[in-house]
Design a protein around this nucleic acid. Structure first.
Lengths: 204, 204
DNA sequence: CACTACATCAGTAGTATTACGTAAAAAAAT
DNA sequence: ATTTTTTTACGTAATACTACTGATGTAGTG
């Protein structure tokens, strides 16, 4: 019994490369291809593949959103992400929504075959560089900021002055100053630009 | 006479996709493949291809640097860049160093064939979306900043205070304030964070 | 040479932020 | 129900920045 695959990527060359890699393997059967998240959702429900191999960043609807929809309908869906980015955020997000695999686009052919087979058998597979990334993810950070402080920090990063924040939040400027003080103290950030950088590192 | 190609990309899948696309065409002959800029330089001099088709962002040495070296040795080298990024900066850089073509990784197969043929015949080829990008490029920006002002702006963006800049540059704080004022006036930027954003947009 | 653009520095006045400390009401945790 | 954390707010003093105006020397241009 062949493993039925649906491949989704917005780049033709990529799909062609994957097809070239997998079509001569007698284990695999590429039953459909799509080029965005919406097509992924549609193809999954119509073709019912064993494995969905999809890119993350795509026009119209990205792979993560597509996977979320698919998994809502079928929690056992076997989805493997194929991404150029070894961004810890992406990887963590992918895992958390229930993806079974995450490989980078620089994987070798045998590694890719291996990944698909393992997931098809009900396992999980993270690319060699991917597992490391996950460990590095969020080494600590956050600095123990409270919600309010995080909010203030993100507003500072957007270029707001204390006065503007006070107006927008219906608080006194003094209060904003207090929060800003706490943020500075907790993060060790000096002036506004330094705080803005920290905010970027923190996601905002 | 077939067109001799050297293909350079750090992603195996990509190269496999390109190969799958071009190898059945009787016009093309892929004589070598590499996976970084250093290999590109080496392969070009050793294989003397008609066309070098290379990625831009690669480990060890990027495609732009590789192309610069190759073109220094052989100004008539026909180099086509293949990039995921339709970044105007990249495109402008590629053109300025003498690349003959620039296509995005989402090109269709016939378009890619077309690009290679045209460049092989001595022409130039910019992907359909690429030409637009070049027009959009640098709508104006720079704001007419002087060198000093640009320097100050970049330091502000790094989080320096006026006093620090004065110390580092051996200038009076007043002078820094003057420059900062000019920068604000020219860019329309308000507080430091806003200036930092503008600095990012400007490259620094 | 006159003219213009740059970079340099100064004065004055006002606004914003930093760096301390204090404290009370509300919310969350135990 | 009590303790802790969070959010709110104010005081004071120093420092940093903004918004003006004006001045000097140096280069480069026509």
């Amino acid at each position: 019994m062949k493993i039925k695959l649906v491949i989704v990527d917005d780049h033709d060359i990529l799909r062609e490369g994957i097809r070239a890699r997998l079509q001569d393997h007698d284990k695999f059967d590429i039953i459909a291809e799509g080029r965005n998240g919406a097509e992924a959702v549609d193809l999954y429900s119509r073709c019912n593949p064993d494995i969905l191999l999809t890119d993350i960043s795509m026009p119209t609807m990205n792979g993560l959103d597509a996977a979320t929809q698919i998994l809502a309908a079928d929690p056992d869906a076997k989805i493997i992400f194929l991404s150029v980015y070894n961004d810890p955020e992406y990887i963590a997000k992918a895992i958390s929504i229930g993806a079974k695999g995450f490989i980078l686009k620089d994987v070798s052919k045998p590694e890719m075959v291996n990944a698909i087979c393992r997931v098809a058998q009900g396992g999980k597979y993270l690319g060699p560089n991917v597992a490391d990334m996950l460990n590095q993810k969020q080494p600590d950070t956050d600095y123990g900021l409270t919600n309010r402080e995080r909010d203030i920090l993100s507003r500072i990063a957007k270029g707001a002055t204390n006065k503007e924040m006070a107006r927008d939040l219906n608080l006194s400027v003094r209060t904003i100053e207090s929060h800003r003080s706490s943020v500075r103290e907790k993060t060790g950030g000096g002036n506004a630009v330094a705080l803005a950088k920290i905010a970027r590192d923190l996601n905002l």
